[in-house]
Design a protein around this nucleic acid. Structure first.
Lengths: 117, 117
DNA sequence: TAAAGGTTGACACAAGTGTGGTAAGGTTTG
DNA sequence: CAAACCTTACCACACTTGTGTCAACCTTTA
């Protein structure tokens, strides 16, 4: 036997079997499978399941949050896009002062309306 | 006037006024306020509101996700904890082989039960 | 000063998330 | 082989998220 079955794993980790499957569906802990498809949790999975509960409780976050963090670290494009958004500054011709730019924004609607008549 | 009011901002960004308040409540875009408490959106906020919509649509993520990413970059402790979880490996005495360790795990319940009687 | 527009707070509702339970069927084991 | 256990696929239900709308009240502006 190369690992604990789902009920055994549930017992030693504090998760319900149902939630172990859910955690797996979120891509967080994916145990090995026996030839017939039984989930087999090894020492590493069990440890990570325990620390996962602590992580969630300690910081008041959810599985979805950890799942998103996982996406962030796997999907470079996503990470870069989010990063870029946080750092984005206004990009517009440097010779238009704020006041003018704002007026332009403010009047855009009127201009659009005017253009339609 | 130091910026656009909420309805004007809504018009030029594509968000509804309701959602602009919601985005603000998520900590993503917090406009300046006039002395009497009116929201005033400047060029930077408007730009970031527009790119935010693109970010969400392009990657199929939600405001909550971006909010969590924000938490991650601001809260060092959280970031470290999540990072640590992703990288965690099993920590246990190196001289106990997997097979023994698993047996130990497997029998923990029986031992607990036995201890109670 | 009346109209237009801003503020917060609350109600409402669809869609998504977290979690439990159950059913139908295959597997392991005493 | 019967009991105990696993698998997937659903139903269900409470809670959260995203979004609109409305009320009560204050501010700006024509």
């Amino acid at each position: 036997m190369a690992g604990l079955t789902i009920n055994e794993a549930a017992e030693t980790t504090g998760w319900s079997p149902r939630m172990l499957r859910y955690v797996e569906s979120a891509g967080l802990i994916e145990p090995q499978r026996s030839p017939k498809g039984y989930r087999l949790y090894g020492p590493e999975e069990l440890q990570r399941l325990r620390t996962l509960r602590v992580l969630l409780e300690d910081h008041g976050i959810g599985l979805g949050d950890v799942g998103f963090a996982l996406r962030l670290r796997r999907d470079t494009e996503l990470r870069d896009a989010v990063e870029a958004w946080f750092e984005a500054e206004v990009t517009r011709p440097a010779d238009i002062p704020d006041s003018a730019w704002l007026r332009w924004e403010q009047e855009k609607h009127q201009r659009l309306l005017a253009a339609l008549t």
